[in-house]
Simulated scan of single mutants.
Amino acid sequence: MSSALPAGKKMWIRAFYGFGPEGDGYVGWSQEAGRNHILKHIQDGDLIMIYGAGSVETEKTLRSHVLGFVQVDATPIRDVDKSSEDSLAWKKSRGWQEKWTYGIPVRRAWRVDEKVMISTIAFKTYRPEAGQAIGVWGAELQEEEIKQALKIKVSETNVFGEPPVTSDALTNSPFGEEFKPTRGFPGTSGKREASYQDGETFLYLAKYDGNAHAFLGKPKTFGPQPAAFKIGVSNDVKARMAQLNSGIPPAAKARWVPEMEASFPDRKAAENAEQLYKDNCKLESLGGEFFWGKAEDASKAFRSLPGVSRF
């Protein structure tokens, strides 16, 4: 099981009254300032762990318990953009029409299959006295807390406005299973209620241009030296490289640089090629989308992929 998220991804926590992505395909805020605050920090593909708020509106058995995880996009929307009619009617029946109207879209969601208290997972970030602030602003989890979160057993569930989950979706398994190299962590495409357009997507092979041996604790040997590589998909490779390098100090010489890329008509086609690379390349897996090996082996595996060799 993986003990970390894919490179560049973060996990946040947020308190709410319940967990119903099947009808509410968004995470909402009642004040635009709260939503805009998270947009300054969150990235496409980040995760939010939802737990039951400690208020009377939350069912007693759910209060302070982890309810589920959602993968979101950093895109501002309104509740009506990604809510079912039944969900909007439910809000209206309780006089909550003006609540949680400012949102960001949920693309995928996982419901927790076991009873877990938020305090046992977010043991550094969560504080009962800060519950209201976390509900409004959210909070980013630390690495050791994420490791605990990835042990929770979950099942993927449908999200309103997104394609239904497939037969191979994660079921009653540790959340970290979603991040194994054999599974990847795909984005989503298809018909959506929010303003999202699928289209040309690039498969890229990036190389760590720096002292990868020191970076990974690998001993140097005689002859041509192996290197660290990353396979991935993006609709903007340049922006993706900037995101990957954002955690590296500006003064450092090392950077992730694109070695090869190929265009595909949509994200699904690019992700299929990415999975073929993960399944068939001869490089050593470093977890997630990262590999270790000779440059010629990395590039040969890339060029051999269907839809790549012609570029």
Rank of each mutant, 00 (worst) to 15 (best):
A74C: 07
Q71H: 04
K60E: 15
E57K: 14
E57M: 08
W96F: 04
M49L: 14
E85L: 11
R63N: 04
I38A: 06
F69Q: 13
V66M: 01
S64Q: 11
H41R: 12
G52M: 12
D86E: 13
E98C: 09
S87C: 04
Y51E: 06
I42R: 00
T58K: 05
V70T: 12
W96N: 03
T101Y: 09
F69T: 14
K40Q: 15
A89C: 06
G34K: 05
R35K: 13
G68I: 13
H65T: 05
L88C: 00
Q43F: 13
H65R: 13
I50E: 03
A53F: 04
I104N: 06
R78H: 13
E98Y: 07
Y102S: 05
R63P: 09
G52D: 12
P76V: 02
G34M: 02
A74R: 00
D86N: 08
D79E: 10
E98I: 07
I38M: 13
W90R: 02
A53I: 01
K99I: 02
T75R: 15
R35C: 05
H37R: 12
K82L: 08
D86T: 14
I42D: 02
N36A: 12
V72T: 10
S83W: 01
V66D: 04
R35W: 01
A53V: 08
E57H: 11
E98A: 10
S87M: 01
Y51D: 08
I77A: 11
D44F: 09
W100S: 02
Q71T: 12
D44P: 11
G68M: 05
N36D: 13
K91P: 02
M49H: 11
D79N: 11
L88F: 01
W90Y: 07
G52R: 10
G34L: 10
G34C: 14
S55T: 10
I48M: 05
K92W: 01
A33W: 02
G68C: 13
G54L: 09
Q97I: 06
V56M: 14
G68H: 08
I104P: 00
S55C: 09
F69H: 12
S87V: 00
A89S: 13
V80E: 12
G68R: 11
G34Y: 03
Q43L: 13
W100F: 03
L88V: 03
